[in-house]
Simulated assay, not measured.
Amino acid sequence: MITLTRKQLRTARSLLRRTLGLRSRNDQTPVEIAATAQGTSVRAASQKFALEYRLPGNPEMETIVLPYATLVECEGTRQDPVRVHTAKDQVVLQWEEKGFPQCIWTDVKSASNFPARPEEMQENPSSLLTILAEAVAITSKESSRFALDCCRLRGSDGQLAATDGRQALVQAGFDFPWEEGLLIPACPGFTAKEFLNEKPVRMGKTEDWVAIQSGPCTIWSRIDQQRRFPEIDRITPKESEASTTLTLTDHDASFLHSALSRLPGKEEYNAPITLDLSETPIIRAKSANHPTTELLLCQSTCIGEKLRCCTNRLYLARAIELGFLSFRLKDANSPILCHKNSKTYFWAPLDQSGVLPPEENSLQIESAPPKLAATNAA
């Protein structure tokens, strides 16, 4: 018999759902619960991903395989015990619900082929978990001849890169226990709070899989050995070629991030806005039903040539979410570059036919009154 709590089963099911993309509560994916001297593990695998969630030990050593849907029925938010055992080729789960005994009988399932744990697991900083989660938002769900749904993990310089063909995120300085560049699908499980909040972080690889361990959770991503990755190094803008640099204050960054989703035109294709970069930086937007609205970033600065360009507001918002405050532009048609320490983010602007010129009767909203801005600057 294996004993788990309802809360442990809830956590395991949540991780399995997100990692393996299990949409239906009635999904019959086999889930293996194994009690050994090292502890109890809950694990399952798909073609591209696998997850193992380890828990403290169990008095009896046993392995039971049951359908994912069964976990949905007996999970909960309390620490009430759930006893799992087999009887007459059936899996039996027993627990109490508000003092009333509950029992489920289900067919024993055959275990899925589960990837082996790498012999070498290299420790890495917790920032690896952060960029893995960020990469899930950067990659494209629609794959093509380029592996745009994958992250590239390059061991020679410890670099992780992700792109959807319009934006790219790169960070170096990690310690991968291999030299080559490996492509792995960006796993939705990387964004699970149970995965992000754990330490230490270790990773390794087998012939076909990369395994990333965060505390009791280990996620495997199958290595894509067929497709190619875009030449990120070649297309990354150079800081030295920038002619204009916009630098936001913390106040203006917070103000801008909050305002971007409320500016007119957010429902339009590519959610366009105009960056008007001069002495006082201005963000400009309009729509068919709303007049031109301008955000005046009173505390921020522009250095270099005056420039106007059109961009997708979602990428600007993401850059702020990633912690960037400086934006470098070579010209209105070149990618917008953000770089800080070992992290780089850049994206392509929109066609410049969408640039909005100033209008006399536009609605203007200041990030801070001029007097307050002057006081803060002093």
Rank of each mutant, 00 (worst) to 15 (best):
A259Y: 03
R262N: 13
L263P: 07
P264N: 04
G265I: 02
G265K: 03
E267T: 02
E268R: 06
E268W: 01
N270A: 14
A271M: 06
A271F: 04
P272E: 01
P272C: 04
I273P: 03
I273H: 04
L275M: 10
L275N: 02
D276R: 10
S278Q: 12
I282R: 11
I283F: 10
R284H: 03
R284T: 05
R284N: 05
R284Q: 07
A285P: 01
A285T: 02
A285W: 01
K286G: 00
A288R: 11
A288W: 11
H290N: 13
H290A: 15
H290V: 05
T293W: 02
T293C: 09
E294V: 12
L296A: 15
L296I: 14
C298I: 02
Q299Y: 03
Q299I: 06
Q299K: 11
Q299V: 02
S300T: 08
T301A: 14
C302V: 15
I303A: 13
G304S: 01
G304K: 04
L307H: 09
C309S: 11
C310A: 14
C310Q: 06
C310G: 06
Y315F: 15
L316H: 04
L316I: 10
A317T: 07
A317R: 07
I320R: 00
I320P: 01
E321S: 12
E321F: 00
L322A: 08
L322W: 05
G323Q: 09
F324W: 08
F324C: 07
F324R: 07
S326M: 04
S326T: 11
F327K: 05
F327P: 04
R328L: 11
K330L: 13
D331Y: 05
C338M: 12
C338D: 03
C338A: 08
K340H: 15
N341L: 12
S342R: 15
F346S: 01
F346K: 05
W347K: 10
A348L: 14
P349W: 01
P349N: 06
L350D: 04
L350Q: 01
D351R: 13
Q352P: 02
S353N: 12
S353M: 00
V355E: 00
L356M: 08
P357I: 12
N361D: 14
N361W: 07
N361Q: 11
S362V: 04
S362H: 03
S362W: 03
Q364A: 10
Q364T: 09
Q364E: 10
Q364R: 14
I365K: 13
E366T: 09
E366R: 08
S367P: 02
S367T: 06
A368C: 13
P369K: 14
P369D: 14
P369R: 14
P370N: 03
P370Q: 04
P370I: 06
